[in-house]
């Protein structure tokens, strides 16, 4: 309990990070409460089309060109955006950490091979590769998550490798070898906890990027056709943007806020996890 409290005290000092956390918590609450607050299909026609926001209490954020409730869709969209953000960043972290740790710890030929592979992925433009992958895998939430993870693990791998290289030659790691500890255990139980802070920060930035990537894919019509997402809403509203800006503007604002919130949180995590700022 005590270390958690200390962590919170350090985190709290960054006001922007507290604001970011509030945004993230709000979005999470929206995602969790959506089916409970608004049962039924969020994409059903609920009223007249093109009702502007803040006009009637029945549709606080108005309706789109088909008369669907934007407020309700926003809640359901948070589910997809957050799910993609969390799942894609976790898969990304898993792939990136594994490859980075192996390359950094073992080095030599294996390390060179893994890093050349990483560089190969880095030379392909992210969004292009993601588009191709989603097209091949068929549009579904899972394929969106997998595609995003495949295009974004390289940075995590490079950071993890650099950290492992740094710790690999530290005396305490040597002391563990001398103690007779097998390599996998040294990697997992000794080095990994030490390299966790930069990876946590990295992963939160990737979560923000994943939300953006999902929005781009949905905007282009390559998202999961069976679920509402903010990107899809933005994309659907773009043809009526000149007479009803809010149809794509409001979900666009939601994307902006969510990405901003997560970035602020990762900033705060960076400050709070940085050991140089810890001892005061």
């Amino acid at each position: 309990m005590e270390p958690l409290l200390q962590f919170w005290r350090r985190y709290r000092q960054n006001r922007g990070a507290v604001f970011g956390l509030a945004i993230v918590l709000t979005a999470s609450a929206m995602a969790l409460l959506a089916p409970w607050l608004f049962p039924g299909d969020p994409r059903r026609i609920a009223g007249a089309p093109y009702i502007a926001p803040f006009v009637t209490w029945q549709f606080p954020l108005g309706t789109d060109q088909l008369g669907r409730d934007i407020f309700v869709q926003l809640f359901y969209g948070a589910r997809v955006s957050l799910l993609v953000g969390i799942a894609a960043s976790l898969v990304t972290a898993l792939i990136g950490c594994t490859i980075g740790a192996l390359a950094g710890f073992y080095g030599g030929r294996l390390g060179a091979l893994l890093m050349r592979g990483t560089e190969m992925f880095q030379t392909i433009p992210d969004i292009m590769l993601a588009l191709v992958l989603v097209t091949i895998l068929q549009a579904s939430l899972l394929s969106v998550i997998i595609s995003i993870a495949i295009v974004s693990w390289t940075t995590v791998a490079r950071v993890t490798r650099a950290e492992f290289l740094k710790f690999r030659s530290q005396d305490f790691v040597l002391a563990c070898v001398v103690m007779g500890m097998p390599s996998w255990r040294i990697i997992v139980s000794q080095i990994f906890p030490n390299v966790l802070p930069p990876i946590v920060v990295m992963t939160s930035i990737i979560a923000a990027g994943a939300i953006l990537a999902e929005s781009s894919l949905s905007f282009l019509g390559l998202g999961d056709p069976n679920s509402v997402s903010w990107g899809m809403m933005t994309g659907a509203g773009r043809s009526v943007f000149r007479n009803a800006w809010y149809v794509s503007g409001i979900p666009g604002l939601a994307i902006l806020m969510a990405v901003l919130g997560i970035n602020l949180v990762s900033d705060g995590l960076n400050d709070a996890l940085n050991p140089r700022r810890r001892e005061r």
């Binding site: 005396d171 305490f172 906890p193």
Partner: peptide, 9 residues
């Protein structure tokens, strides 16, 4: 080097 021979965590 005793300063770096122990895992800080």
């Amino acid at each position: 080097e005793p300063m770096t021979s122990l895992n800080p965590l």
